[in-house]
Simulated scan of single mutants.
Amino acid sequence: MLLPRLTDARKELRRTQIAEAAVRCFSRNGLERTSIADITAESGLSTGSIYAHYRNKADLVQAAAREVLDKRAEAIGQYAAADVPPDPDELLSRLIAAIDPAEARVGVQTWSEATTDPAVRDIVVDMTDRMRAMVHECVTAWLVKVEHDEPARAGERATPIAHRVMALYQAELLYTAMQTPTEGTAS
């Protein structure tokens, strides 16, 4: 009996389901202590299904990081496209308000792994650079649309502002990760 092939949309849904299960496992158990078997159990899928979508755990770490970044990217893109983009303080407030404690724990664990694992480091550097670029774009839009700066000047002025917004956002991620107990842990 032949099994029906998954459509591209269904494949993407399955990948998202697996990545979300990985985030929950990584948050609860840590990156190092989470196995593919844990992710299989959490997702409700077969091991074969996991490996049909991801080569290994490093792929899942990358997918989990991208899943989180994609959520932020969508919101930041909407902010930048608004008639009145948020000022840097408001942008930071909105980013902080959107922090999910489980995602914060995974983010901090990923940063830690990046200090010893070059593949994870590449993921972290790429994701951080992409997020900083999106914040820069939003700050630039605010400077042009609200502060009426020339685009070139706005881009220059936005660089240190975006850097500070990112630094404060990452500090809040760390704070959230440290303040929020994992499931099954006494508070």
Score class of each variant (00 low, 15 high):
130 R>M: 05
99 I>H: 04
105 R>Q: 14
50 I>Q: 04
160 P>T: 08
83 D>G: 14
115 T>D: 04
112 S>I: 13
160 P>A: 11
73 A>L: 12
147 E>R: 15
63 A>K: 05
93 S>E: 14
58 A>Q: 13
141 A>Y: 01
134 M>K: 15
160 P>G: 12
135 V>S: 00
153 R>V: 12
124 V>R: 02
167 A>C: 08
109 Q>N: 10
155 G>P: 07
141 A>I: 01
127 M>P: 02
95 L>W: 08
145 K>Q: 10
120 V>L: 10
96 I>A: 13
176 T>D: 08
120 V>G: 05
85 P>S: 07
56 N>E: 04
71 K>H: 12
144 V>M: 02
161 I>K: 08
79 Y>R: 06
176 T>C: 13
59 D>L: 04
66 R>A: 14
157 R>I: 12
173 L>F: 03
158 A>D: 01
174 L>V: 14
73 A>S: 13
74 E>F: 12
76 I>M: 02
93 S>F: 05
53 H>D: 08
152 A>L: 15
107 G>Y: 04
152 A>I: 13
138 C>E: 05
78 Q>A: 14
54 Y>V: 01
174 L>P: 03
139 V>N: 08
129 D>Y: 07
100 D>F: 00
71 K>G: 14
128 T>N: 11
102 A>L: 10
174 L>H: 12
119 A>F: 10
158 A>E: 03
141 A>F: 01
75 A>M: 15
70 D>C: 10
132 R>I: 03
86 P>H: 04
121 R>I: 05
97 A>D: 12
120 V>T: 15
74 E>G: 11
98 A>L: 08
116 T>Q: 08
77 G>M: 05
115 T>I: 09
123 I>K: 00
74 E>S: 14
103 E>W: 02
69 L>V: 05
102 A>M: 12
120 V>C: 03
119 A>E: 15
114 A>D: 03
55 R>L: 08
106 V>L: 01
160 P>H: 10
121 R>G: 06
122 D>F: 02
60 L>E: 02
151 P>N: 06
143 L>V: 04
105 R>G: 09
135 V>I: 15
101 P>Y: 06
146 V>M: 03
84 V>F: 11
54 Y>R: 06
141 A>N: 02
168 L>I: 05
107 G>K: 00
155 G>C: 09
167 A>N: 09
83 D>C: 06
153 R>E: 11
78 Q>D: 14
78 Q>Y: 07
86 P>D: 05
113 E>Q: 13
147 E>D: 10
65 A>R: 06
146 V>S: 05
162 A>W: 05
122 D>K: 09
98 A>V: 05
64 A>Y: 03
175 Y>K: 15
153 R>L: 15
172 E>H: 12
127 M>I: 15
53 H>L: 00
106 V>W: 00
176 T>Q: 11
125 V>E: 13
118 P>F: 07
166 M>T: 09
134 M>R: 15
160 P>Q: 10
112 S>F: 09
166 M>Y: 06
128 T>G: 07
147 E>T: 04
168 L>Y: 08
175 Y>A: 14
62 Q>Y: 09
80 A>Y: 00
159 T>R: 15
88 P>Q: 08
174 L>G: 12
150 E>C: 06
170 Q>M: 14
81 A>G: 13
